[in-house]
Amino acid sequence: MTEYALILISTVLVNNFVLVKFLGLCPFMGVSKRFETALGMGLATTFVMTLSAVCTWMVESYVLLPLGIEYLRTIAYILVIAAVVQFTETVMHRQSPVLYQVLGIFLPLITTNCAVLGVAILNTQQEHTLVESAVYGFGAAVGFSLVLILFAGIRERVTVADVPRPFQGSAVAMITAGLMSLAFMGFAGLVSR
């Protein structure tokens, strides 16, 4: 149990995928303009990441390893992730059409969110078990969502702040992201793993 708690804290805070590992920066900058969209994107990514972490672990252990074709790992993982994203899109179109419309192009783009593939590959690299993989994927996604939502909250306030002209728009967002990353560096050493 401690093991899983450690993985969770480690991925959410210490080795945060966005601010420490610098994965998944595209949706981090792209979908963080509005709080509600960020929340929706966070939820969708959490679902996809956890599910794809489990699915890729299964593909790795039951298909790739027994057949000795580990060299096809990247292609197989991308295949699985693309299928999971498409599945999520279909279900979301049915269950939550407004969120589907709000997320728009960013939903299919979860496929190319490098954090999702990153989770799968790091799971293989660190030789996680099935449950560890799921917790790792979930933790990474929670970390991603947390940072995305915090960033969206900050950006909503920054738009009404008196920002000097050269820094307006994306520039101040980049600076904000940098400062957030700096703040998250403070978690290093909390868990040594």
Binding site: L67, G68, A76, L79, A83
Partner: peptide, 18 residues
């Protein structure tokens, strides 16, 4: 051959699911 077969099967299964 195994590699081709495995990838084809994987893709087919996922396709059917979708």
């Amino acid at each position: 051959l195994t590699a081709i077969l495995a990838m084809t099967t994987l893709a087919a299964v996922l396709g059917l699911l979708l």
